[in-house]
Design a protein around this nucleic acid. Structure first.
Lengths: 294, 294, 294
DNA sequence: ATAGGTTTTGTCAAGCTTTTGTACAT
DNA sequence: ATGTACAAAAGCTTGACAAAACCTAT
C-alpha cells in the first residue's frame, strides 16, 4: 500500500472520482485522507492509493455516512492494511504451520495450544482467515495429493471442529437477522460453513446450524420453524449441490438463499436462484452482511 | 416451563387473544390464571405463558365452558407437564424432557440452558447416561416413527455435538492408557462414541478421536501413529461394521479392539476378534476401564 | 458484537431503521438501548450494534410490544449475546477483566456467564492459566492493597470455588496415578490447589482432595488409605507450611511429596524433602506429570 | 361498564452548535 | 494553489405536550 505511481493532478482525480476539486482539497486539509505528492511548482500529484481512498470516501458518503466518519474509517483501514497483519507474512505461516504440524502427527495437546495461541493473538476473523481456513485447505489439498492420510485428515477436522464449536456457543442468540446454515445431502465437509457461521455471528447474525449432510426436507423444516432472513449453503464438492438443486431452487422462492464453497459454481448458483458467495468463508460473511444492510 | 420473556402489555395481549382488556383483568383477579409482571409505573407485562393460558381460556369458553371451570382446567394443565402425553414416555426425566422440547423447536438458547443445567446437577456419567443418551435415542426413534423431522434431528445432533465436543477438549493428553475412537466407513452417527470417549476420559484414558465415517486406512494410520492400548469402534448400524469386518479383523491382530453400539452384534464382534461392549456408551467405558485395570 | 465501526449519524440511522431521529434520541435517553459514540463536536455516531438494536426495537414495537418492554428485552439479549471483543492480544485480559468486574460488583449471573464463556472458548489449562488464576491473583492483591473488600473477596472465591468444584466432580476415579491434595493446617486458600487438581485430572491423575486447612493427622490417614503416587501440598502463606514442616518431612520418607504456592519457598521444600513446584498451578501439574512419566 | 387519575411514548419547538460542500479573494 | 468565508443542512439539549394506553375503584 505504499506510494503507487499513478500521477494524476487534482482535476483529473476529481473527474475520475466524481467530486469537486475543492472537495478533495477540503478532505485533505480537514481529515488528511489524501496525501498527494507535489510537483516542483506545487501542484498536487495523486497516487493510486489516493484514488482508492477518495473513491471509498465517495462510496461511503453516498451510502449515508458523514464525511468525517467516512474519513476516519478510510484512514483506519488504510493504516491497518499498511501494517501487514499482525507481523510480517511469516508469522502467519508460522502459526498455521505449527498448527498443521501438530495435527498431522496426531498431537492433540500441541494442536490445542496452537489454537489457543492463534486466537489470543488475532481477531476472530483474522484467525479464521489466516490460520484455520488455510490449514483446512492445506489438509484437504495434501489429502488429494496423497501427502496426508485419511486418518490425519479425520483427526485434524475433528479437533478443529471441537474448538470452533466452543466459539459457536450462544450464536443462536442476539439481535441481528437470522440465518440457517447447512450443507446439502452428501456433503460432509462443514468446517468452512462453521467458520462462516462464526464470522456471521460476530456481525450480529443469529445462527441456526444444521451442519453437514442435510437433506432438503431437513432444511425445509428448519426454515419453516425459524423463518430466517437467509439460508446459507456450504458446498465443497459440486455433485451434492447439483443433486440438491431442485429442492434449493424451490426454497429460494420463499427465502433468500446464498451458496458458498468450491462446489458452488456460478452456473449452479444462478440456476438455483441464489446469491453466490465468492472467496473464503469470512469473505462470504462480509458479503452477506453487506447485502443485508440495505 | 420457564417464564418466557414475551413482554406485551394488556392491550396487545387482548388484541392477540381476542378478548377485552377488562376481561383479562377479571380473569386475573378472580381466578389467578394470569400472572403478569408490572412495570415501574404499575402496568401489567405479560409473558408467553400468560398468552398461552389466555388463549386456552378463550378456546374453552368459546367451546361452552363456564369461565370458572375453564380457569381451573387451565391452571391445572399449566401445573402439569405440557408434553403431549400420547407418546411413549421413554424420556421420563424432567431435565431430558426440557432439553428434548427445546431441541425439537430449534431453540438453541433453551437447549444450551438445559444442557448447562443438566451438567451442573449431575456427574458427567449421570448426565450422559440419564439425559443425553436418552434424548438422542428419543430423537432417533421419533425420526424413525416420523414424529421428528430430519431438520429437528440434524439440529439436535449438531447442538449436542457442539456441547459434548466442548467437554472433550484436551482429552488427548495425560498419563492413562491411550484409546483411538472411530466409527467405520459409512457410519455417520458418532454421538454415542463421543459420549463413550468422554466417559473414558473421565476414567483417565487419553483419547484420539477420529469420529464418524472413518475408512480402515485412516484408522490404521492413527493406530500406527499413537500406538494405543485400545481401539474403540462405534457402530449404530450393522452394515458399515460388516463392510469393515476384514480391515478390523486384521487390526485386531495387532491391537486390542472393542466394538459397541446397536450395530455391533455379537456374531460380528466375535468374527472380528473384538471385545463387544454391551449396554450404552457409559457402560462401555466402565467395561473397558475394568478390563484395563487388570 | 460491539465491534464494527459503522459510523453513521442520527439522520442516516433514522432513515435506515425507519424511525424519527427524535425517537432514537428518546430511546437512548429513556432506556439506554443505544450507545452512540460522539464526534468532537458532540454529534452522535452509531455503530453496527446500535443499528441492530434499533432495528430490533422497531420490529418488536411493530409486533405490538410496548417500547419499554422491547427495550429491556433488547438490552438483555444484547448483553447475553455480546461476545468479548474483536481485539487481538487483549482478548485474554478482556475475558479476565469481564469476569473480575462481574465478581467485584457481586453479579453472580454475569460471573457465571463469563466463566462459561471462558471455558467454552479455551482449553481448561488455558482457562485456568490465563483467566481464573490471574483473576484470583488480582482479587488477592486488591485485597492487600485495600481496593477489594473482604466481602468482594469472599464472593469471588465462593463463586469460583463452586464452579471449579463443578468441574472437579468424579475426579477420584480412573486408571492414572493417584494424588492426594491438601493445604497445611492454618492455610485457608485452596483455590490454587483446586486448579492444580483440575489440571492434574485432565492429565489422567486420580485426585483425592482434602482441601484447605488440613491437619497432619488427616493427611496421614488419607495417605494410608489410598496409597497415592504423590502428595501435593498447596501453601499460599509460608507460616502454616513451616508449622507443618516436621509432619510433612516424615511423610516424605514414605511417599513422594510436592509443594507449590507462594509459601513454598525453596529452603522449606528442601528441608521437607519435597519437590518444589514453580510457577502457577497449571505449570505445577505439568511438572508433576512430566516427573511421573518417567 | 364508567369515571377519574396516571403512565407511557412519539413528536415538536426554540435556541444554539457543528459539519461540510462550495465560493471567493489573493 | 491557498486560505478564508459562508451558508445550508444536520445535530444537540432542554422542556414540554398530548394522544393513547393503562390503572383502580365504584
Amino acid at each position: 500500500m505504499d506510494v503507487t505511481p499513478l500521477g494524476v493532478r487534482i482535476g483529473e482525480l476529481a473527474r475520475r472520482v466524481g467530486v469537486a476539486p475543492e472537495t478533495l482539497r477540503a478532505w485533505e486539509r480537514r481529515y488528511g485522507v489524501l496525501r498527494p505528492a507535489r510537483t516542483h511548482g506545487g501542484y498536487r500529484v495523486y497516487g493510486l492509493d489516493d484514488e482508492l481512498r477518495a473513491r471509498r470516501m465517495r462510496e461511503l458518503i453516498d451510502g449515508g455516512w458523514a464525511a468525517g466518519e467516512a474519513a476516519s474509517a478510510v484512514t483506519a483501514q488504510a493504516s491497518a492494511a499498511a501494517w501487514p497483519g499482525d507481523r510480517p507474512e511469516r508469522v502467519r505461516d508460522e502459526a498455521a504451520g505449527e498448527m498443521l504440524r501438530a495435527l498431522l502427527r496426531f498431537d492433540a495437546a500441541a494442536g490445542n495450544v496452537a489454537f489457543d495461541r492463534v486466537l489470543a493473538a488475532r481477531t476472530l476473523d483474522g484467525a479464521l482467515r489466516d490460520v484455520v481456513l488455510p490449514v483446512l485447505r492445506e489438509v484437504g489439498d495434501g489429502w488429494e495429493r496423497g501427502d496426508v492420510s485419511v486418518g490425519q485428515e479425520h483427526f485434524a477436522s475433528e479437533l478443529l471442529t471441537g474448538r470452533l464449536r466452543g466459539l459457536a456457543r450462544e450464536w443462536g442468540g442476539g439481535l441481528g437477522p437470522h440465518a440457517v446454515l447447512a450443507c446439502p445431502a452428501g456433503e460432509r465437509h462443514d468446517l468452512g460453513l462453521l467458520c462462516c457461521g462464526l464470522a456471521l455471528h460476530r456481525r450480529g447474525w443469529r445462527i441456526t446450524y444444521l451442519g453437514a449432510d442435510t437433506p432438503a426436507a431437513a432444511l425445509e423444516a428448519a426454515v419453516a420453524a425459524v423463518d430466517p432472513a437467509r439460508v446459507v449453503i456450504g458446498a465443497v464438492q459440486e455433485a451434492p449441490l447439483r443433486e440438491a438443486e431442485d429442492g434449493l431452487g424451490a426454497l429460494a422462492g420463499r427465502v433468500q438463499v446464498a451458496v458458498g464453497g468450491h462446489g458452488a459454481v456460478p452456473e449452479l448458483a444462478e440456476r438455483i436462484g441464489a446469491l453466490r458467495l465468492e472467496g473464503d468463508a469470512v469473505a462470504g460473511a462480509v458479503a452477506l452482511t453487506r447485502a443485508a444492510e440495505r
